[in-house]
Nucleic acid binder design. Structure first.
Lengths: 125, 125
DNA sequence: CGGTATCCTTTCCGATACTG
DNA sequence: CAGTATCGGAAAGGATACCG
């Protein structure tokens, strides 16, 4: 029941949509934050939640499930009481972390400039 | 009338939300595609639209406006008939393009593996 | 050509309640 | 602790019509 390749003209160049879709997934802010945090090592659910900050339990769960499905994160359950679950990056996940880290560094370096530009655009006085 | 810093516990670590927000913006798939395409040089609206593929006129307009507001893209209008509008990256935009390109390369290199992982997760037979 | 305005559907995502 | 289930408002985003 998947979209069987929606209206795509034969005349247009290579279909970039699979790439767009993939970028939409991994470009997701929670995904980026999650992978970045997991770089520090295996981390438990609520620990991750606190590290990221501002993420709801549902969103973190959904993000982690998607990452697990895609083979970027692995989930290790320790059947203790109370239960303990550790998430960690797979090799594939670690390979993605590198470009994501570069992106985060860019944000840290340039967020102030962007916010200034944005303010100038609002108040061009 | 902006959100004046929503509920943030004092006990939590540094507030990552400005960074999350910024990542949510530039991590947007249309934004990534647009900036990547503009790396090839100044490009006209419909040209860009065709290059990206699968983007509605509205979304491309919105994406370009946002990028312009943030100072990542500049817009040059030639008052010819018919009108001609060229978009190009600013220096700031070009600096962002580098990490984004790395990300796109990762996607190209790993999309097949991810899709296999995803299929395996659906059919674990 | 390069938009803007409007409508409308789909998806996102937070809040809440409940579970092993 | 680490979830799952359900709901509802908000936001994203496509389709269409129209304009300079």
């Amino acid at each position: 029941m998947d979209l069987p390749t929606p209206p795509q003209q034969p005349g247009t160049s290579a279909d970039c949509r699979p790439i767009s879709q993939m970028l939409g997934r991994i470009g997701d802010k929670w995904t980026i934050m999650t992978i970045t945090m997991l770089l520090k090592g295996p981390t438990r659910f609520n620990q991750l939640r606190r590290m990221i900050g501002g993420v709801s339990q549902q969103m973190l769960t959904r993000t982690l499930r998607a990452l697990e499905t895609d083979g970027l994160v692995s989930r290790q359950v320790y059947p203790t009481i109370p239960p303990q679950v550790e998430y960690s990056l797979t090799d594939l996940g670690r390979s993605l972390a590198e470009p994501l880290t570069q992106l985060t560094i860019w944000v840290l370096d340039n967020i102030e400039q962007v916010e200034r530009n944005r303010a100038d655009a609002t108040q061009p006085s």
